[in-house]
Simulated scan of single mutants.
Amino acid sequence: MKNPKQNKIPFIILLVFHTGLLCYSFYKTKNNKRVFTLLMSNIGFAYLLEFFVLNIFNAYKYKPRMMKKKYFDNILGAILSQAIFVPFTAVFLTTLKIGWVGKVMGGVYFSLVEFVFLRINVYQHNWWKTVYTLILIPLYLKVSDIWNMFLAKKYSLIHFMSLFLTSMVTEANILFIFASLRKIRFGFGRFHTLNEHFIIVPLYAIFYSLISTLSFLKQNNWISKLRVLVLTVSLDLLFKQVKLVKEKFHVLDYLTIRVLAILLHGKYRDWVYGGNNEVELKEIELDTKKRHYGDRLSIVIKNKS
């Protein structure tokens, strides 16, 4: 009989492998801020899809056996998949400019991983089918390419959505950590179930991230930070008053967490909306000089002829 502790081994192997892919992606690129923004956007897309596929419609179940409670263990497996394995691969293929062949091979790769996970019983299907993975993964990987192109062209809507997705992923991850530590629980009525909690949490993260993104839209300053703090604390007090949330935070601990999260969101704003980094500016300056000298050389050649 297989030792349940062995369930975590394939997840750890994939974690190490895909972390290596991400590190190589950062190493090969000159704009790490854009790569980070792309990564968080990709994770955000995956989280939104997972909200419907896993949290609401219960398509499959992960069994990494890394957490005592099965519900949290299932969500952790989904986080490893949707926040690490697939998005890290997407960033790797995008930064190395690997085309449709790589995207299709990515779909085949994750389908094979899924097949192996099913065979060794660390993952199970409810109504999901591997063919869905085979079809959807290449499309997801292509969206990463398109999003990166839009980021490079500095489209305002893409910047707004990227900041929103980055903030949403951060909020969702923070809430998962504190829920697993039994510090917070969302739900309706007297007893808040984990099923209720993980349906409400994504909506909570979306709502708060929208507030943060709109507040930091024009600039990252102390007025923006204070506005986010006042709005989020007021809403948390309202949610607590109507018993939508139960939390065990000391007031000082809660404010510290909220302030740190707001500072982090402000930093995201600088990374997403910031101008070209120093390396890019040097490249632009070099390209400009090359074009300038090239034009002068052409004029000289024409005059001699």
Rank of each mutant, 00 (worst) to 15 (best):
A59Y: 05
T95G: 07
Y62N: 04
L93M: 13
R65C: 04
P87S: 09
F85Q: 08
L96T: 11
A78P: 06
T89C: 15
L96S: 12
S81V: 14
P64Q: 03
T89A: 06
G99N: 01
K70W: 15
L80K: 01
V86I: 15
A78Y: 07
N74K: 02
I79H: 06
L96M: 09
L93R: 05
L76D: 01
L96R: 13
S81Y: 15
K69S: 09
S81R: 15
P87L: 01
A90K: 01
V91P: 03
T95V: 11
A59N: 08
A78T: 10
L96H: 10
P64R: 07
P87G: 04
F72D: 11
R65G: 00
I98K: 02
V91L: 06
S81P: 04
G99C: 10
L76I: 11
I98C: 07
S81A: 15
K70F: 12
L80W: 03
F72G: 03
V86N: 04
K68W: 10
A78E: 02
V86Q: 13
K63N: 08
Q82F: 08
Y60H: 07
T89H: 13
V91R: 10
T94C: 03
G99P: 00
Q82N: 13
A90D: 03
D73N: 05
A90P: 00
K70I: 15
P87N: 00
F88W: 05
Y71G: 08
I75A: 05
V86Y: 14
M67K: 12
F72R: 09
A90T: 00
F88R: 06
P64F: 06
R65L: 01
F72I: 05
L93I: 14
T94F: 14
T95D: 11
F85T: 00
Q82I: 09
I98W: 05
K61D: 09
A83N: 04
Q82T: 09
D73H: 04
K97F: 11
V91H: 06
L80A: 01
F92V: 05
T94R: 08
P64I: 03
K61E: 09
I84D: 04
P64D: 03
Y62W: 14
F85G: 05
I98T: 07
M66N: 08
Y62Q: 05
A59E: 00
M66C: 08
